[in-house]
Every structure is written in C-alpha cells, then in structure tokens.
C-alpha cells in the first residue's frame, strides 16, 4: 500500500495540469487562507472588544458555542441551496468553523489579563483604547495565536469539502479516489492535507516567535 501511494505521488501526470497536485494544493491553501483571514477579521475584534469591556461576553461565547455545534455539511448545503455552487458556500462553512476557537481564545485571553495590570495601566492614565492595544492585546496574543492555529488546522482539514461543490482543492483526490476505488489516491490526498496541517503548525510557531513579546516567552516554567 505504501508503495502504491509512493507510486501515486511519483506519477508524472499528478504534477501537471489543472487537476495536478500543485494546482489542487494551491486551491486548498487559497480557500484555507481566505477563510482564516475572514474569520480572524471577524473574531479578533469582537473578542477584543467584548473581552475589554466585559459586555456582550456571554453573547459572544454563546455565538461561538452555536458555531461549534453547527454541522459544517449543513451550513455548506444551506448556502449552496441559497446561492448556488461555488466558493462562497465553502467559505461560509469554513468561517463558521474557524470563528469559534479564535473568538473564544481572544475573549479569554483579554479576560485573563491580571486585573492588577489593568489597574496599573488605568492608574497611570491610559485610556480605554490604550489599555486594550498596549496591554491587553500583547498579553492575549499567545492565546489568540493558539486559537488561530487550532482554527487553521480545522480549516485545512475541512476544506476538503470544497470538492463537493466542484471547486477542487485536495479533497478532489479523496472524492475521486473514492469514486474510482483508488485507495492510494485517497491516501495521497490525505497525506497532503496532513502535510499542510504540519506546515501550518510550523508557521504558527514561527509567528509566535516574531510577534509575542520576549518578556512573555522567556519566562521561568511554573512548577506543577
């Protein structure tokens, strides 16, 4: 079986044309990045504001929980029925999947900032937005990034559904492999998805190094 998969990977036709691995991989990355960016643009501001003000937090968490409970297939189907096949339904379904972890982690990250630090910031004369941007956001960043990474892995893994609405992506190999009864094709497509998930994990580790303040990273490990 491993040999079959290797064979599938090395077949020359896999690497060229509109149905080849590079194109499918590119589609998959494109759909995933788009969904993640849109989700972050929605979830991070909402999480920051609700976490900062403490108002609407319950509503935000409830929305996130509903989002978690939504069956992705159902969302996809509903939007397809409403708007037809294409990129839009896939993105809606993926965004519904990605918003909850980012939203919850952003909210928790801001709420989790030590009240003492908030008190110090206000006591020194920081205004609301300054407290949010100079204190709460940097401190919540590790948790926000973690939420985004979780969302990214879920999105990458779930973006295979794009194949069902006819816009390709790595899911194409899985679906085609099933209909053609070619196990090596399903395995090959899956391996590519896992590879992408690992790349995502690595990228987030890198991102964490770049954007998380040094004072937060290099801390002595707590005992326990």
């Amino acid at each position: 079986m491993i040999l079959d998969v290797l064979d599938w990977f090395t077949r020359s036709e896999q690497w060229t044309g509109s149905g080849g691995i590079p194109v499918r991989f590119g589609e998959h990355v494109l759909y995933s990045v788009l969904a993640l960016v849109v989700s972050a643009l929605i979830a991070v501001p909402v999480g920051l504001v609700t976490g900062h003000t403490g108002r609407g937090g319950f509503a935000a968490i409830t929305v996130a929980n509903v989002g978690r409970a939504l069956p992705t297939i159902g969302v996809l189907t509903l939007v397809v029925l409403g708007m037809g096949l294409g990129l839009f339904p896939v993105e809606v379904a993926l965004v519904a999947l990605a918003v909850p972890p980012i939203l919850v982690n952003t909210y928790e990250g801001v709420r989790g900032v030590d009240p003492l630090l908030r008190d110090a910031a206000q006591g020194m004369g920081m205004r609301g937005a300054q407290v949010l941007l100079r204190l709460e956001l940097p401190l919540a960043l590790p948790l926000i990034l973690l939420g985004m990474r979780t969302a990214a892995i879920q999105v990458v893994s779930t973006a295979t559904i794009a194949a069902y609405v006819g816009i390709g992506g790595l899911g194409r190999f899985i679906v085609d492999g099933q209909s053609r009864r070619e196990i090596e094709m399903i395995l090959g497509g899956s391996l590519l998805v896992v590879l992408l998930a690992l790349v995502v994990t690595g990228l987030f580790a890198l991102l964490r190094r770049l954007v998380v303040a040094r004072g937060l990273r290099a801390r002595p490990a707590a005992t326990g």
Binding site: P101, G109, P142, L143, L146, T201, L216
Partner: peptide, 15 residues
C-alpha cells in the same frame, strides 16, 4: 506544541 483549542481556553502564556 500543537494542542488544539479545547474550548475552555487552551494553554497560553498570560501574565
């Protein structure tokens, strides 16, 4: 390294 979000807020580095 790769803990998925577990809903109740995953391990982070806060204050």
């Amino acid at each position: 390294p790769t803990a998925p979000d577990t809903g109740s807020a995953a391990p982070p580095a806060a204050p």
